[in-house]
Design a protein around this nucleic acid. Sequence first.
DNA 1: TCTTCTCTGTGACTAAGTCACATACATCCC
DNA 2: GGGATGTATGTGACTTAGTCACAGAGAAGA
Lengths: 210, 210
Amino acid sequence: MTKNEFIKTFSVFRNSSDELLKEFLAIARHQDVPAGKRIYSEGDACPVIAFVVSGEIRVFKTGQTGREITLYEIGPGETCILNASCILSGTSYPANAVTISDVTMLLIPSSDFRRLVDRHEEMRDFVFALLSRRLSGVMELVEEVAFGRMDERLLDYLIEKSENGKLETTHQNIANDLGTSREVVSRLLKDLERKQEVRLSRNSIVLLKT
Amino acid sequence: MTKNEFIKTFSVFRNSSDELLKEFLAIARHQDVPAGKRIYSEGDACPVIAFVVSGEIRVFKTGQTGREITLYEIGPGETCILNASCILSGTSYPANAVTISDVTMLLIPSSDFRRLVDRHEEMRDFVFALLSRRLSGVMELVEEVAFGRMDERLLDYLIEKSENGKLETTHQNIANDLGTSREVVSRLLKDLERKQEVRLSRNSIVLLKT
DNA sequence: TCTTCTCTGTGACTAAGTCACATACATCCC
DNA sequence: GGGATGTATGTGACTTAGTCACAGAGAAGA
């Protein structure tokens, strides 16, 4: 990957020293991962840190009952900050991660990453900013889960995830993102359909009231 | 505060350079805050960062209905990492904080803190470690809230918070920590009393089955 | 003792999650 | 086309959690 390609995706580094960019790109190993592949599981060690060039990764927790909840998603120009967190604090991975589309990423071994963070202010700023954004985000999620109504959370979710008022996914997938069960999602969606707010069919939800 | 007093509480800095310690202590402003005082509210800016020398601070979120949930507590030798997070990423405070006992802390203006982090590896390590511990902790909390049963969460809470099998607090305070309502706590405690697992009286809960 | 304030108890109702099972849709094979 | 199979969705009955309204108990001061 060239310097220019890198900067295009990781725009925070656009004004960074040539030294940092050269070092980074010399170390980085390019990797492609197909959609639906588990990247990390809870308790894993973190030998490398991943910088996502394209595609999306879902980070989630699992309950004993098998229910799941999405903590956040990682997109292009971001890094799997939990890797950073593990590496810099020497702990193991506290959640699960899976690719939700084909993903291209740059891998940096943890020892090299540590050195980059120590040497380069831009790298530190990047990591701090992302780490604190995640912390805020997960705190926000606690608030939603603890106090929010499921029907409202579902509606917000539909609006956020839909493209042109349409969403192609299963009720189970929605439940896994929201941390509830498939039945609850099915029932709430049916209520919305009765209120003429959505049209349902297999693998598809169409928003009517925009 | 002398260097030795500081190191006693913030033991991670015990092997740090004299330079860092001197600089830190020259900048730090000592402050005492009585119990029950609001330190930050959601949306506040962070002009300073607080290093807690003694006492405890509770960090929590509030819902529209007035319910609260504790995200974590800050004790001696820790810093209010959300301050750090705000300062280093330039955002505002995403939660509320209140002293739960008399607190003594050292305040560092944000610009000075930024400089300390840039210059000293030990300070970076300290901040990263705490930040990632908090992130893990809050993720754990999401899991508990999303999937845990309230009776089990309550029991865990009682065991964790009790001293010599005794706990002096109100049902409302417990509810505020767990993110539920006072009635739910009262009912579940009554159930535990009927099962001979606790003895209840005003402002006090005694664990019987240790 | 009376008043006032805080804390706790409880019934009735709504929201959310679980369990069990029925039904619908899609795909592949013949 | 017509089955067979697998995945996705619908729904009733039940349990757990949260809300609302209000009753009653304990503490503390006048």
